[in-house]
């Protein structure tokens, strides 16, 4: 029987790609230590900086928030309520999970942005009006990116952390390679720096963990997260890419990790022109003040035009 590297007790998790196993008592400490190492090696943020964690009520973001608090960071949460219902009260349930997590940790703060209250429509309503019911994920992404950036800047946080794990990053990479999205490939990196045009610094401290590991951390730590998948994510290409990568991982452990980590290494060695060197003209949105490639108002502000 496989044993814990630390104490030889029966293993709760075996990470074949690392040839490493831990029991439930020692696995969380390993996750915390690895996260600390990732934050330092990529100079994501320091202990004097307040961190805003984008939380969805899911395992990755709540686990990240928990780990940052364990590491002693002043980490607060941001939940964006898109009013997704689809018969299972998805947003209401995930919002409740995030709020319950925060309530159990009185030293933290949870900022909630209710999109319908702020802008007059839920995600489903705006998607219907835009005749984009088949593709609400694109609108969801647009809303979340805009609001995460806005709140981070308005509330004075120097950095926004998201719970993206290695499976998320590898699936994104596979999608971008399959369709040769060179612009996205140039931008994919665990740290996106702040810039003078009004983009907040964004970091991904979990980008080296497999999704299985963040789920195991959440289960062992007793974090109550939403298990249900977003109803709009059914059939999403990112999930299909994750399944494909997991089949490859099953046949050859470490495939996902090599695919993603070697991509980062190749970028560091100059495979792509750094995105900072790209000549993209960014303007300031006349309505919200955020940076945009559009000439007058950004795509987010135009979304609410009736």
């Amino acid at each position: 029987m496989r044993q814990c590297r630390q104490c030889a007790a029966p293993a709760a998790i075996h990470m074949r790609q690392h040839r490493l196993a831990f029991c439930a008592a020692h696995f969380p400490a390993w996750v915390v230590k690895q996260t600390s190492r990732t934050i330092r090696s990529h100079r994501m943020f320091g202990h004097s900086e307040r961190v805003l964690v984008a939380v969805s009520g899911g395992k990755d973001s709540l686990a990240l928030w928990d780990v940052l608090l364990e590491l002693g960071y002043q980490a607060d949460g941001l939940y964006i309520d898109l009013g997704i219902d689809a018969g299972d009260a998805y947003s209401a349930t995930s919002r409740h999970k995030a709020a319950a997590f925060a309530a159990a940790r009185p030293d933290t703060r949870l900022i909630i942005v209710d999109i319908a209250a702020c802008y007059g429509e839920t995600l489903a309503e705006v998607a219907r009006r835009k005749r984009d019911i088949q593709r609400p994920c694109a609108i969801c992404g647009l809303i979340k990116r805009h609001e995460m950036n806005r709140v981070t800047l308005e509330e004075g946080y120097p950095v926004l952390a998201t719970g993206h794990n290695l499976d998320d990053e590898a699936a994104t990479l596979l999608g971008n390679v399959l369709y040769w999205q060179s612009g996205y490939l140039r931008r994919q990196w665990p740290v996106l720096p702040a810039d003078e045009t009004g983009l907040a610094r964004k970091v991904k401290p979990f980008h080296r963990f497999y999704e299985r590991e963040t789920a195991a951390y959440a289960l062992i730590r007793g974090i109550d997260y939403i298990h249900a998948e977003c109803p709009h994510a059914v059939g999403a290409s990112s999930i299909a890419h994750k399944q494909t990568l997991n089949q490859m991982e099953h046949a050859k452990p470490g495939t996902k990790m090599q695919f993603y980590i070697n991509f980062l290494r190749a970028k560091k060695e100059g495979l792509f022109v750094p995105f900072e060197d790209e000549q993209i003209t960014l303007n300031t949105c006349a309505q919200c003040g955020q940076s945009t490639t559009a000439e007058a108002r950004c795509t987010f502000c135009r979304l609410w035009e009736v």
Partner: peptide, 21 residues
């Protein structure tokens, strides 16, 4: 872990880890 043996009186739950959209 995957190499362990489950016994007839065990209650077993399998938890999905894939998420995203």
């Amino acid at each position: 872990a995957e190499d362990q043996t489950l016994e007839p009186d065990d209650e077993v739950k399998i938890v999905d880890v894939i998420s995203g959209g």
